[in-house]
């Protein structure tokens, strides 16, 4: 399998067109050309860290402030899931649990695993690494569900002191956490998966 780099060329990651290795911008789409993104892992870890920092207050502070008959109840992400569970809305509870708890945690673990694996030569199955990378890139945006739910609820439910719903601080930090981890996933240079493959089983 010949890669653009081994042929002394550089491939555009935006449109695919190949150019001589010393060319700086793509002739077809104007994207900056770089044979390999040397700072990729640094940026992954930087976004990963701020994402994790934002995820901590997102779980400690309330996501939703519900006022009903002059009493205000604060609920964090997890309390919101438990409320739904007790209420009997199991399907919705599972959706919110997956989007707000399982996916973010799994993303932190997976991005860290990929970044650690690709930092040095590896002997893993390239297809499995690529699949992990694809899943992480695809699934990140779906964590935004809960933020949108809070947005809709707090706009709709404004019946004064009888019943009103307001977003809590966690809504902001959770949204930021999702954005930062999406940027972390996008910072990966997928070509490293094959570059770092040690001579082992074919492909």
């Amino acid at each position: 399998m010949i890669t653009a780099r081994s042929a002394g060329l550089v491939g555009c990651r935006s449109c695919g067109l190949v150019a001589p290795a010393d060319q700086l911008t793509c002739a077809r789409c104007g994207a900056p050309l770089q044979s390999r993104d040397d700072t990729s892992l640094q940026r992954v870890w930087a976004w990963w860290t701020v994402g994790l920092l934002a995820y901590i207050p997102a779980n400690i502070y309330p996501m939703l402030l519900t006022t009903q008959v002059f009493r205000t109840k604060e609920s964090t992400i997890l309390e919101g899931v438990l409320d739904l569970m007790q209420h009997g809305d199991h399907l919705v509870a599972i959706i919110i649990f997956l989007a707000s708890v399982f996916i973010p945690v799994a993303k932190f673990v997976t991005i860290a695993f990929l970044a650690a694996t690709l930092a040095r030569p590896h002997k893993r199955e390239t297809h499995q690494l690529l699949r992990l990378y694809d899943i992480v890139e695809f699934i990140g945006r779906w964590s935004m569900i809960d933020v949108f739910v809070v947005a809709i609820l707090s706009t709709l439910v404004q019946f004064g002191s009888l019943a009103s719903i307001n977003p809590g601080f966690a809504a902001v930090s959770f949204a930021l956490s999702v954005i930062f981890t999406m940027l972390a996933a996008q910072s990966f240079d997928s070509r490293m998966i094959w570059d770092q493959l040690q001579d082992g089983p074919a492909r």
């Binding site: 809305d89 890139e137 945006r141 779906w142 949108f148 739910v149 809709i152």
Partner: peptide, 20 residues
């Protein structure tokens, strides 16, 4: 493309309706 989230919002609407 990854930042356009109208379809994620639609799921959010469905969840909000159940909560309400």
């Amino acid at each position: 493309k990854p930042w356009a989230m109208a379809e994620v919002f639609m799921v959010g609407v469905a969840v909000a309706l159940v909560k309400l």
